[in-house]
């Protein structure tokens, strides 16, 4: 019995850790969607761009300075996107904005790699490489845990706590929630819409930087980071587009479900089901609860 629980727990834990990483990317999506109603397909490209910026700056600067500079660059990017893309497209349909962010995705992908190069870079944050072994006494052999995953989980936790405080306890946070509820009403009570958007995109940029750090240490900084965003889409569908806790819970469910399915159901299908399992779960979920686990109910008027 114990021999079977060991591997199961290890897979589960691995899945949950991967889920935290998905949640980090999903968080960026949710932030922007909450505040501006834009589904930002470019979040993955922003993760790649942020990670590339950080890794190349760390070649010449110490970590703290490089991190600060990367943050500044992400804010500048947010500023450019707000000025050049969002402002001219204000009052357009969601679908048009979505397609615009696909355009942004391609642009940032190309721009980032032209600027910083397209090799694979390793990101060294000084974390121990060898995995930790926990729960050795009750389980034979124990469970292997990667320090990088733990670091990511802790960062994600801190980030969510920080965002929760930011959203609920500060004046800017309250303005953000007001904008999310109703653009026009928020504007009519004197909330500057453009500033709010700039703040949200900047926060999403910083979240992308953190996500890029976590993924970058795990996979190396390379083009495939941009594809991580595609994995985050089922996460937000499951969790609900407008809910920050939903992004975390959705991430955990998708991460764990995906790994468990790959190990326990996968062999029956010939393996590799990891790539679509999450989507099919999200799709089935959509049929029964279109707003996701924690999302707000979708109400439409003619």
């Amino acid at each position: 019995m114990l021999e079977e629980i060991g591997p199961f727990l290890e897979v589960l834990l691995g899945g949950l850790m991967a889920g935290v990483l998905y949640a980090l990317v999903a968080l960026g999506f949710v932030l922007i969607f909450k505040a501006s109603g834009v589904f930002n397909f470019a979040q993955g490209a922003m993760v790649l761009f942020a990670a590339l910026t950080l890794v190349r700056l760390m070649e010449v600067l110490p970590f703290v300075l490089a991190f600060a500079a990367s943050c500044a660059i992400m804010v500048a990017l947010a500023f450019a996107i707000e000025r050049l893309v969002l402002r001219p497209l204000v009052n357009q349909e969601g679908l048009i904005l979505f397609m615009a962010t696909i355009g942004i995705t391609f642009f940032i992908d190309g721009f980032g790699q032209t600027l910083w190069g397209s090799d694979i870079y390793t990101l060294e944050l000084g974390l121990p490489k060898s995995p930790w072994i926990i729960l050795d006494p009750p389980l034979p052999g124990g469970i292997l845990v990667s320090p990088v995953d733990v670091f990511a989980a802790v960062t994600a936790g801190a980030l969510v706590a920080g965002l929760a405080v930011f959203f609920n306890r500060t004046k800017v946070g309250r303005a953000l929630r007001a904008v999310a509820d109703d653009h026009q009403a928020a504007q009519s009570v004197g909330i500057p819409l453009n500033t709010i958007w700039l703040i949200v995109w900047s926060v999403a940029g910083v979240v992308a930087l953190v996500a890029g750090m976590a993924w970058g240490t795990k996979l190396g900084v390379q083009f495939s980071l941009a594809l991580v965003a595609l994995k985050a889409i089922p996460v937000i569908i499951l969790g609900g587009l407008t809910s920050i806790p939903g992004a975390i819970v959705g991430g955990l469910i998708i991460g764990a479900g995906e790994k468990l399915a790959e190990v326990y159901i996968g062999p029956a299908f010939g393996g590799g089901i990891e790539n679509w399992f999450a989507y099919v779960v999200a799709l089935l979920f959509l049929l029964f609860r279109p707003q996701g686990l924690f999302g707000e109910r979708i109400i439409e008027r003619v």
Binding site: L89, A100, G103, I104, F106, F107, D109, T114, S118
Partner: peptide
């Protein structure tokens, strides 16, 4: 060239949508 292609397509999409 392939990155340039990405940038051109991306920028054009945005420009056309606007």
């Amino acid at each position: 060239v392939s990155h340039l292609e990405f940038m051109i397509f991306g920028a054009l999409i945005v420009v056309f949508l606007i």
